[in-house]
Design a protein around this nucleic acid. Structure first.
Lengths: 156, 156
DNA sequence: TTGAATCCCATAAAATACCATGCTATACCA
DNA sequence: TGGTATAGCATGGTATTTTATGGGATTCAA
């Protein structure tokens, strides 16, 4: 039995003409053991698709309700961005999901996609774009060692 | 079995001459599994229709009672706006609901409608109007990345 | 009885489940 | 350690089901 439910590793799979991709076997196992479903949406800040377990969105819904007023514009905007875009993606017996045209376009994915584990979430990138992104992140980390004690207020 | 009951995704369906629209299949499944019914009313702040599970209105009633005074004008107005307008919309065997003339007029919907998931509720828009609205929200989110730590007091 | 709402049937398209194959990584044994 | 068997996985293709949607029939109410 698994102790942690974290998406890890980086694996590249083919996307066929219908937009089908195999979800990495590890991810599938995790979803099953968590007794949950995958939800995907366009990243708000990057040209990639983001995915997570459905439970995380439930938590997010509760957080938004607590932090904002039912009738507020903020709540309206947030829920539009997140829930208006997200969708459940169940995989078939062979372990594939079907990514929508909208998601594929946003991430510039055509015939190949790379899954990147990010703990509670994962991302799906166009392979070339991700190679660049990873290089950028690693270079930045070398220059400026990351810290967990950064001041939230000054965080950009 | 579903763990979360959140309206998600954005789907566009046709409205026929009789005012019938297919409720997105996912929404239908959700309503059935929640063992509830859909309620719709005119949004109080936007040119669109809002919908949710009947249960949410029950919760809203309680919230309004807690947040406002029984004799207050605010409570009067809110209850008028929401409960005076809301009505149950059951879907037929083929999964369609019939939107009233009043709702369609408020949202300027004629022959096509887009359903936008918002978590506990959803909205129904005229497609062109929603395209503009979504663009506006996404642009704003890019400028100022949303946060859940926003100060309630300073929230506009 | 007329108009409107609801139900039912039919069809086309799209989403999903299923089957089959070849490959790869792992386990097993000499 | 090296070689082989095996199970799991990705992936191409096909079959089946679901879904949206037009049109007509039936019911209900005014």
């Amino acid at each position: 039995m698994r102790k942690t439910f974290l998406f890890m590793d980086t694996v590249t799979n083919k996307v066929d003409a219908k937009g089908r991709v195999s979800l990495p076997a590890e991810y599938r196992a995790l979803v099953k053991e968590a007794n949950s479903e995958i939800v995907c949406y366009r990243s708000i800040s990057q040209p990639c698709i983001e995915g997570c377990l459905e439970d995380l969105l439930e938590k997010l819904a509760a957080d938004i309700e607590n932090a904002t007023d039912f009738f507020s514009e903020t709540q309206d905007n947030l829920t539009n961005l997140i829930f208006g875009d997200a969708r459940r993606y169940t995989f078939d017996t062979t372990g594939r999901i079907m990514l929508s045209e909208k998601l594929l376009a946003h991430a510039h994915i055509t015939d190949s996609a790379v899954f990147v584990g990010k703990g509670r979430k994962f991302q799906i990138w166009n392979p070339e774009n991700y190679a660049k992104e990873e290089a950028r992140i690693r270079a930045a980390a070398l220059k400026c060692r990351p810290s967990l004690h950064l001041n939230k207020e000054t965080e950009k």
